[in-house]
Design a protein around this nucleic acid. Structure first.
Lengths: 195, 195
DNA sequence: CTTTTAAAGAAACGATTGTTCAGTTAATCC
DNA sequence: GGATTAACTGAACAATCGTTTCTTTAAAAG
């Protein structure tokens, strides 16, 4: 047999990416074989190479798409002059965006070492650009006198680590709603950096 | 050839564990082969099985030893009645302990999914016991009125995520000393949870 | 209806995987 | 100093790896 009824590139292509996303998140890039991905899609392993040049590109594309979408969305937020308001919006945005895409987030910082050095540099640059957004908010507030942190760079990394940690435990339908979680974290972030 | 000059179980055993630790941290459990570990030790792959029943045990032993040592050290700290003092000591302990063992820390929460379900349960229980120590400090301070957090459990996870994040960027000999980093984080933690 | 082409199957490639095992050597024991 | 044993080598096992190639089929084009 070969081409099966109803088989199409524009259907299979996204399914390959979705299967890779799911399996990489579940088991890790190195532990997942191309045959496993193919089985998830319902296709033979060789057919995957109609949609990706190799396994590594599958991983890179997942990360690249995730981070470029993250950057696009955060940059699409309207500017706020008040640093406190800007920090609250960043906090809520980060939690909401990340909790909605647990697989992508997990992969994007568990599988960095499986990227080629060139691909790694591109992903790291995007991550740095995202951190810069928070750093600029904190620096502006520091200058305006509404924030008082000992070190803006360290505070940036501390806040991001704290917020990203939500993904390790938060589950929809649990004890707390996403909105409650946002409020709890915003309360802690605000007090941690406020003057 | 076979047994080489000066080869001994009590020398090779620790070297096998050290090589596994280093390589798992660098490349990830699934990406490291037994032959790579053997090469690092300077031995043939088959010889590794004098020291471990299988690859999985190598991983589990690293995690188990790390977490049981962590628990022993944190429990060895003298008790403090003041919740604020207890929280400061926990904060500084966590940063100091974790920054001194980056490989073990990295493995202990990147490779959880490569454990069998039984081994996973044992490691998770130890991690939970560690988190309970911080949670008890926060709960005591909350009751005493010196802390004011919206949710003790969430605050526990938020603080641990923030503190563990130090390992992603801190390097000895960098811009900040470990003591300075401890102080910066303690400042943020204290303000985040204080009444 | 015929031709063309996109999409998939099937099989094979050499390389590598974790693990086992028989054989070999050096240190230890009496 | 001969026997025993711990520590290791080297080869082999079937299974699986990412990837390529060739073939077959169904859909699209005319």
């Amino acid at each position: 047999m070969a081409r099966t009824q109803g088989s199409h590139s524009d259907i299979t292509g996204p399914r390959v990416r979705a299967a890779a996303l799911k399996l990489f998140a579940e088991q890790g890039y190195a532990a997942v074989s191309m045959r496993q991905i193919a089985r998830e899609v319902g296709v033979q392993a060789g057919a995957l190479y109609n949609y990706t040049p190799d396994k590594q590109s599958l991983l890179f594309d997942i990360m690249e798409e995730h981070l470029s979408d993250l950057l696009a969305k955060v940059r699409a937020l309207p500017l706020l002059d008040d640093p406190v308001a800007a920090l609250e919006r960043f906090t809520r945005f980060h939690i909401r965006y990340h909790s909605a895409r647990p697989d992508e987030v997990f992969i994007a910082y568990m599988e960095l070492r499986n990227l080629s050095s060139e691909n790694f540099a591109r992903i790291e640059a995007m991550r740095g650009a995202y951190e810069d957004i928070l750093e600029n908010i904190l620096a502006a507030g520091q200058q305006a006198g509404c924030f008082a942190v000992a070190d803006v760079k360290v505070a940036t990394l501390a806040v991001i680590a704290m917020l990203t940690g939500v993904n390790t435990w938060f589950r929809e339908g649990g004890r707390l709603s996403l909105d409650e979680v946002e409020t709890i974290y915003w309360d802690m972030v605000r007090r941690a950096v406020s003057a």
